[in-house]
């Protein structure tokens, strides 16, 4: 339940990134990508990524003109990330960065491909792809680094030291 709320909050935050007044390049940062990378970097999952599909449909609901293309894009990104995580043993923030960037590239490419037959595909170029991959990778790497810090354990240790 907590995860679901956090996912919704992430999507809302993503929508806020595209709000008027925000820098346009900020829309390249795909905040929900961490919910795709996180499960697969811990336990590479085989099978169709139903959770990513649900995430994509939620993305469509808040951010896309039609419902369906986001489901395609995010489930494809989850498949790509899962396949990469299955062959890469590294679980460092760098791995988070790489998988996040890969997920962003796949998500944008598949979204473009899904919207193209509908006549709704926005212009896509290499700069936008690289920019989004770097930003999303950095965001995923940051999350991975924070998780790597294991803050709850540190907090408990800190409280224990204070008590003594």
């Amino acid at each position: 339940m907590t995860v679901a709320v956090l996912v919704v909050l992430t999507l809302v935050a993503q929508r806020a990134l595209g709000a008027p007044g925000m820098p346009p390049w900020l829309t390249g940062l795909l905040l929900p990508m961490v919910w795709v990378v996180a499960p697969r970097i811990r336990t590479p999952i085989s099978g169709f990524p139903v959770a990513a599909l649900a995430l994509g449909l939620g993305w469509d609901l808040l951010l896309e003109p039609v419902i369906g293309t986001g489901g395609i894009a995010w489930s494809a990104a989850a498949l790509a990330v899962g396949a990469a995580a299955a062959v890469v043993a590294d679980r460092s923030p760098a791995a988070w960065f790489g998988l996040g960037a890969l997920g962003a590239l796949v998500m944008l490419a598949m979204r473009h491909l899904a919207l193209l037959p509908l006549g709704l595909a926005p212009p896509l170029n290499a700069l936008v792809l690289v920019q989004s991959a770097l930003l999303t990778g950095a965001w995923a790497g940051l999350v991975g680094w924070v998780l790597g810090l294991d803050l709850p354990v540190r907090w408990r240790r800190y409280r224990a030291r204070r008590l003594h």
Binding site: L53, V66, G68, L79, A114, P117, L118
Partner: peptide, 19 residues
Amino acid sequence: RSLLVWLLLELIAAAQVRH
């Protein structure tokens, strides 16, 4: 399975867009 789901989603999306 993914291809089938994507195809279904694409058809759902195509049903929403009017030209």
